[in-house]
Design a protein around this nucleic acid. Structure first.
Ligand SMILES: [Mn+2]
Ligand SMILES: [Mn+2]
Length: 425
DNA sequence: TTATCAG
DNA sequence: CTGATAACAAGCAGC
DNA sequence: GCTGCT
């Protein structure tokens, strides 16, 4: 499995009718996989000769082994150089149907690199109704379980195509962090915020200043169905939108110092109460996060109801969604007049009150060991730049759960695991 | 998944 | 062209 | 400034 064991490149020559001689036209080292490298190398062993079968070799890339000029190769190349050498030739195939003397340069005028009207195989790309290219549609993202068959990348994209009308209004004009699983839920995942690669025109982006990198982050903004599918094709399972919207893309993308004021990015339009149960199923390995379990969810529901009551006393309306695991997210819409700093502080105050009211149920402890047995009230989740998986976002769980909005009245009678990709229709 | 680099 | 490799986040707490 | 946690 190493190029050193074979050859670096083949020397190419064409037949000159006038002089009845072969003329050097370049090296080709590209286009070989290891299997081909091996078969070509052994084929060449039988054809070794001592002397050079061409008149003149203008340059050498490395030590050369000569072979009888009887193999005909079809190559693709960029252009002819001014010296009549092929630029960047790529080996395509041997042509057993052609004789070496048929390898001539047309019109004696080497201008066109057109050795390959044959065309080589291009794997057909799969498309969907809005014409976004899908790569690796059959890659398995969720393996088969007792509950459901395996789900592929295509299934992921189909889900977002289906849910588009519901999820898009929640993503509109919000900078989006992508939580990507390009090799499925068991593969390596990563967050992706800064988009610095080519993108289709229908995908919008917005410059958002990052203090940490002292530079802007070019966030993706998912404002249409095409973008949603394109994002899903990046292996993005979870959509993590900001809590604030961009009011004015122009001012956001200008370098004006005031742009953040004008584009309103510092002003969230909701506060989120993130309730994370630290109630263990007992099956976790040491140091592992608590995994989904019924008791953990029940404890979270209990805290959620207490929070609902308390907020209602304050005349504050709240909405709840499952996260797809034991965690619950409670949203309070606000007029976007208060910066993140204030919504975070408000959330902290509510959290501290909840701890004092229910010291045996709620905690704001930073140390995870001290959270044990309680529901962690994560008020820092309201800091600028923090995100959560949005409502209707798919989650990288075994059963392919969905973050689902729930009517408070029904909260007592549901389980987060009952909302799945497989029954979302 | 994509860009980049070397063979 | 093939194959290998690298990059893909950031705020807050606490020491 | 570094580490852990989210
Ligand atoms: Mn959470
Ligand atoms: Mn949290």
């Amino acid at each position: 499995g190493n190029r050193i064991d074979f050859f670096g490149s083949l020397l190419l020559a064409v037949y000159c009718m006038k002089e009845k001689k072969f003329k050097f036209v370049g090296h080709t080292g590209s286009g070989f996989d290891y299997k081909l490298l091996d078969t070509v190398y052994s084929k060449l062993q039988e054809l070794k000769i001592e002397s050079m079968p061409i008149d003149h070799l203008p340059y050498m890339n490395r030590e050369t082994t000569w072979v009888k000029p009887i193999l005909v190769a079809e190559v693709k190349f960029n252009v002819w150089t001014k010296d009549g050498i092929m630029r960047a030739p790529i080996f395509l195939r041997f042509r057993e149907d052609k004789k070496p003397t048929e390898c001539t340069i047309q019109a004696d005028n080497p201008t066109k690199g057109d050795s390959n009207d044959v065309g080589y195989e291009i794997k057909e790309q799969s498309h969907n109704s809005v014409d976004v290219k899908i790569s690796n549609p059959d890659k398995v993202y969720w393996s088969k379980t007792r509950e459901h068959p395996e789900f592929t990348k295509k299934d992921l994209i189909n889900y977002y195509e289906f849910i588009g009308p519901l999820i898009l209004p929640h993503l509109k004009d919000r900078p989006l962090s992508l939580s990507r699983y390009p090799n499925g839920i068991h593969g390596k995942s990563f967050y992706h915020k800064n988009w610095d690669q080519p993108k289709p025109d229908f995908v919008m982006t917005a410059q958002v200043h990052s203090e940490q990198r002292n530079d802007n982050i070019n966030y993706i903004v998912c404002n249409n169905k095409e973008s949603l599918l394109w994002i899903a094709n990046l292996g993005c399972i979870e959509m993590h939108p900001w809590y604030s919207r961009i009011n004015d893309f122009d001012s956001c993308n200008s370098s004006s110092l005031l742009y953040e004021e004008k584009c309103e990015l510092n002003f969230p339009d909701f506060i989120v109460f993130d309730l994370d149960p630290y109630i263990y199923s007992g099956k976790e390995k040491r140091g592992q996060e608590p995994e989904y379990n019924r008791a953990g969810f029940r404890a979270t529901v209990e805290v959620a109801f207490e929070l609902y009551d308390f907020l209602r006393e304050l005349k504050i309306r709240s909405y709840i969604k499952t996260s797809g695991k034991s965690v619950l997210h409670i949203y309070v819409p606000v007029i976007n007049n208060y910066p993140y700093e204030q919504t975070r502080n408000f959330s902290e105050i509510i959290a501290k009150i909840m701890v004092s009211k229910f010291p045996n149920k709620v905690t704001t402890e930073w140390n995870t060991l001290k959270r044990k047995g309680n529901v962690f009230f994560d008020y820092n989740q309201n800091s600028r730049g923090k995100t959560l998986a949005s409502v209707y976002s798919l989650r990288p769980t075994e059963s392919a759960t969905i973050s689902m909005p729930i009517n408070w009245k029904k909260l007592d009678s549901i389980l987060p695991t009952e909302f799945r990709k497989s029954n979302s229709l």
